[in-house]
């Protein structure tokens, strides 16, 4: 007699992830408007979009949020 086995549950997996105090992660291929009139295509499996506005590599995060005072972090 075969034993009934529960199938493995699905695992929550977001395409867009807001990192508290940090960037927004985008999974997959996207065309991002950088706010300066440029459309930039993502180049990696996951990309980090700047949310603090201080990055030197816009629209991508360069880690600058970490040197901002906590109240200025996104």
């Amino acid at each position: 007699m075969s034993r009934s086995v529960e199938p493995p549950a699905g695992i929550a997996h977001a395409d867009v992830v807001i990192c508290p105090g940090g960037p927004m992660l985008l999974r997959g291929d996207h065309l991002v408007d950088d706010g300066q009139g440029n459309l930039v295509r993502t180049q990696r499996p996951v990309s980090a979009v700047c949310r603090c506005g201080k990055t030197e590599t816009a629209p991508w995060c360069d880690g600058t949020h970490k040197v901002l005072p906590p109240k200025l972090r996104p």
Partner: peptide, 14 residues
């Protein structure tokens, strides 16, 4: 690594 690791640090930790 400036750009890649700004992504990777979030992925690695969280």
């Amino acid at each position: 690594h400036v750009e890649a690791d700004a992504v990777h640090e979030q992925l690695a930790v969280r």
